[in-house]
Design a protein around this nucleic acid. Structure first.
Length: 233
DNA sequence: CACCAGGCAAGTA
DNA sequence: TACTTGCATGGT
């Protein structure tokens, strides 16, 4: 009897975190100087490569716009031009302004105050802002406000489904619930796990190509049958 | 050339 | 409710 037969999903997730931490070490997420910059990055990186977001963030700083009040007041088309490299710039310009307006209304722009509030209330509030969906809301809760939530990214879903932990077409909330119910989550561990899964997805668990031999999760394959058809990355 | 990237909202049936 | 389309730049 192989060892995979005696590992439940909680053990698999725990082992996954352990293996990825051994491979990646401390990734230092979220890469931002301030909570507000993190929030800006969360919106700009929607369906967009991070390197293109970095350019946009650098532009914002150079224009002196990395400031909640200035973003909120800036002329929309000019803001769009500054963040052009991040793609969907007209839409994202409006999103940044909507979100800034909301945060100013909620806490006067002092984001530190948000950390003391109830997580579910914060999530509801964020989801009420146009342009903020579940993944962006959870990213902000975790990385800007320090709340213990799992960010159920497309990468997480891909890695989990290829390990046959969940169905590949599982909706966002189901993937998140799966982790919340099977992983000993603290803010620190959710922070790491999300970052590890994103990096794993980028390097080893790509959409079309799998690099099974090099993936740090190779040892988690759940049985002989799965080894040759995406049982792991 | 096609495909992908740290999604979301609005429209349609 | 479930599916489709628009949004857009930049790298591989």
């Amino acid at each position: 009897m192989g060892k995979w037969r005696v590992m439940n999903k909680g053990m698999v997730l725990h082992r996954m975190h352990e293996l990825l931490e051994g491979h990646f070490g401390d990734l230092g997420w979220w890469p931002a100087d301030t909570p507000f910059e993190m929030i800006i990055g969360a919106v700009l990186t929607q369906n967009t490569a991070w390197r293109n977001v970095e350019t946009a963030i650098k532009n914002l700083k150079e224009c002196g716009l990395m400031d909640i009040e200035k973003i909120e007041r800036e002329e929309p088309s000019h803001l769009a031009a500054v963040i052009r490299s991040s793609g969907y710039h007209r839409v994202k310009s409006a999103k940044l302004q909507e979100l800034s307006r909301y945060l100013i209304a909620e806490c006067g722009g002092d984001l530190k105050k948000m950390e003391a509030r109830d997580m579910k209330d914060l999530r509801c509030g964020l989801l009420g802002v146009k342009g903020v969906g579940p993944e962006t809301a959870d990213s902000i809760l975790l990385y800007a406000f320090g709340k213990p939530v799992f960010v159920a990214s497309a990468y997480a879903k891909r890695v989990f489904s290829r390990h046959r932990l969940i169905d590949e077409d599982s909706p966002y909330d189901l993937v998140q619930t799966f982790v919340h119910e099977n992983f000993d989550g603290t803010t620190k561990r959710f922070n790491q796990l999300h970052a590890f899964l994103v990096e794993t997805g980028k390097k080893f668990c790509k959409k079309k190509r799998a690099l099974c031999g090099e993936c740090p999760l190779g040892g988690l394959a759940r049985g002989p049958k799965e080894r040759n058809h995406h049982g792991h990355c």
